[in-house]
């Protein structure tokens, strides 16, 4: 079993049920994903949750051509949720445009005694970070904190709008060793990690340690402190941490 640890927190001042980031974890399948529902869109929490729940339990869906029919099907499902009930004028207007979310999916499988192959697919600014010996060796699809802006590519729920982003899907694959760690992060945490992992390694290492030791209160404190000091944007945060271990993973697959 691949051992995954995760964190999901809403913006400061909001309730957990208002968090529009979502996480999908299927350690038994080696599939992990995060999505960041765009706050200003309609029912983006459901859209982010649909994407993560379904991607994590499917096969494949790591190449652009595989994704189109999948996200069309899920988009239709999201649309149906709202099309059959009377809505006030503002909800009807907003539902007509639908929801938007970023998405990052990561699949990993053991290949040899000490080796792993992995694939990732991304739309938008949720990021995969590969760590080796505590150092970032890869960040995908963005690799600089300054690249994060307020207008990332987003996957629309409305099937009629999805064609416009087909060309924006990014894919990457690679190999990893036992002991490597992978992080799946939505934008605020990804920008924070990329900005401070070099200048303040003890801070980001502490974050990983708390994530791995499943200390939700200490983690929430760290996030709150970083938000208060304005180093971390007050946004929903989602993180999945996965440390590869040949022994552990061979049991699973």
């Amino acid at each position: 079993m691949l051992n995954a640890h995760s964190l999901l927190l809403p913006k400061d001042g909001l309730h957990p049920h208002e968090c529009e980031d979502a996480i999908g974890i299927r350690s038994d399948l080696g599939r992990f994903c995060v999505a960041d529902g765009a706050t200003e869109s309609f029912d983006s929490r459901t859209w982010a949750r649909l994407l993560t729940k379904h991607w994590s339990q499917c096969n494949g869906l790591t190449q652009p051509h595989e994704l189109q029919s999948w996200w069309k099907r899920l988009g239709e499902r999201h649309t149906r949720r709202w099309s059959e009930r009377p809505l006030p004028w503002y909800a009807e207007e907003k539902a007509a445009v639908g929801a938007f979310a970023t998405f990052l999916g990561f699949e990993v499988a053991e290949t040899t005694e000490q080796g792993f192959r992995w694939q990732a697919v991304a739309l938008g600014d949720s990021c995969l970070v590969q760590l080796r010996g505590g150092e970032i060796v890869l960040s995908f699809p963005l690799d600089e904190a300054d690249e994060f802006g307020s207008h990332p590519q987003l996957l629309p729920s409305k099937p009629s709008l999805q064609a416009a982003v087909e060309g924006e899907v990014r894919c990457v694959s690679g190999t990893a060793r036992s002991g490597d760690a992978f992080l799946l992060l939505t934008d605020a945490l990804a920008a924070w990690m990329l900005r401070y992992s070099k200048s303040e390694p003890e801070l980001t290492q502490n974050f990983l340690r708390l994530l791995e030791s499943a200390s939700p209160e200490s983690l929430a404190d760290l996030v709150s402190n970083e938000r208060r000091s304005r180093r971390l944007r007050n946004d929903d945060v989602a993180a999945v941490l996965l440390r590869l271990s040949a022994v552990e993973s061979s049991k699973a697959r």
Binding site: E40, F42, D43, W82, Y90, E93, K94
Partner: peptide, 12 residues
């Protein structure tokens, strides 16, 4: 402003 705060049937 209304549309921006609309999440589902409800408004924040």
């Amino acid at each position: 402003l209304v549309i921006r705060c609309t999440r589902t049937e409800e408004i924040r």
